[in-house]
Simulated assay, not measured.
Amino acid sequence: MRVLFYEFNKMFFKQKAIIFIVLFICIKLMTLCTTASYSVETTEQNKGFYKQYLINLNGKLTAEKETSIKNEQEQIANMHSEKNNVINKYLNGQIDDSEYVLKLNKINNKMKKSEAFTIIEDQYNYIKQDPNNRYFLYTNGWTNLLASESPDIILIFLLLIVITPIFTYEYEKEMIFLILTSKKGKWITPAYKIIAASIITIILTISFSVIEYSYCKVKYGLPLGNFQLQSIVFFKNSAYHMSLMQTYLYISLIKVIGFLVFTYLIIFIAVITKKTVLTLFTSLSIIFIPYFIYFNDSIKFKLPSPLGFMIGNGYFRGTDNRQLVRGAGSFLQISKEAFILEFVYMGIMCFIFIITALCIFSKFRYSRRKKI
């Protein structure tokens, strides 16, 4: 355990990882606060009216709720008709200016909720297609939390900065010879380096998931997490019967596995190249090239690469050819068999990366240049 604590000390303080972790967490928070997010409302006023409607509608669609919606539709239709009548009377000279303004303002005040009710109508039409699996709820928080189709780029760069020097530092500072000639340097030291890298990866991945959850909870609210996953339009064709909260936990777990494989990939490349810059560039290329090639496609979730697991949510979607949120386009459902195969790929890659890294590190031959 002393070796493990030594590796953590070296990582956090000698290699300044603690500074980068704090910095990137701040960047993560700033990014969440400043980037555009998904919202079903156009104004704060609509948001208030929309939430008022949901107070009575939250949950499963019932006959009473359907009747209430149809009554509201009728009332709004009558107000539109009344407004047109007032305008026609004014144009025909049947009412004067003051009476026209008074009646029009009165009707407009009643119709302020009509835009918010349009959102309710859209949600009602969506739920009516599958009322057993789709419920009324405020969707903004869950959609922003679960429907992102890109890997966490900030976490990717943080892991690259923190993990890469764990091995390349020893090569570039020419400490590798001292390590290999020490009592535990050949196998124990690299093994503890990998364990330390694994622990920090798990902690950071979970931390970033919790940060995203907390942000969505505070800004939008994450109500009724026990409702069906299909209540969110992004997952409308999902074959899985899970709650929203269960989906978040599963996606978080999948991300942990994906970023662990990414960490082992970084280590594998580091012991081969022995150079920090080359490791950073190669690792980024392996992740981002297939991401941009298959930007709107489900293929990226089937590649023998950690990319799919680093995104996570694609394994819970169904086939969908409509453009949805955040640039999502045509998508083919990932079958359970394909997910299991991808999970096997992850296990095999972990094994190959770890064993190969240990073997290369332990068999390194250091030759001093003769001074002239």
Rank of each mutant, 00 (worst) to 15 (best):
P190T: 07
A191V: 14
Y192I: 01
K193A: 01
K193M: 09
I194P: 00
I194R: 02
A196E: 08
A196F: 08
A197F: 04
S198G: 08
S198V: 09
S198R: 05
S198H: 05
S198E: 10
I199N: 06
I199C: 08
T201L: 04
T201P: 00
I202N: 01
I202D: 03
I203P: 02
L204W: 06
L204N: 02
L204P: 00
S207A: 15
S207C: 14
F208C: 05
F208V: 05
F208R: 01
S209Q: 06
S209G: 07
S209C: 12
V210H: 06
V210I: 15
I211C: 05
E212I: 05
E212P: 01
Y213K: 05
Y213S: 03
Y213A: 07
Y215F: 12
Y215L: 06
C216H: 11
C216Y: 08
K217F: 13
V218K: 13
V218G: 10
K219V: 14
G221T: 10
L222R: 06
L222I: 06
P223D: 10
P223W: 06
N226V: 11
N226C: 13
N226I: 09
N226D: 15
Q228R: 14
Q230I: 09
S231E: 06
S231N: 11
I232K: 02
I232P: 00
V233H: 09
V233K: 12
V233S: 14
V233E: 13
F234Q: 07
F235I: 06
F235L: 09
F235E: 05
Y240P: 11
Y240L: 14
Y240V: 12
H241V: 12
H241G: 12
H241L: 12
H241W: 08
M242A: 12
S243G: 15
S243A: 08
S243P: 08
L244I: 05
L244C: 09
M245E: 15
M245I: 12
Q246M: 10
T247E: 05
L249T: 11
L249E: 13
Y250E: 14
Y250F: 15
S252L: 06
I254L: 14
K255C: 07
K255M: 08
K255Y: 07
V256N: 02
V256K: 04
I257T: 09
I257Y: 10
G258R: 00
G258L: 03
L260C: 07
L260E: 03
L260F: 11
V261Q: 03
V261F: 04
V261T: 07
F262A: 01
Y264H: 03
L265I: 09
L265V: 07
I266T: 00
I266K: 00
I267T: 01
I269A: 06
A270C: 09
V271R: 14
T276H: 08
V277G: 11
V277N: 12
L278Q: 10
L278V: 12
T279L: 04
T279A: 01
T279G: 03
L280A: 04
L280C: 11
F281G: 15
F281M: 14
T282W: 06
L284R: 03
I286P: 04
I286R: 02
I286Y: 07
I287Q: 05
P290A: 07
Y291N: 05
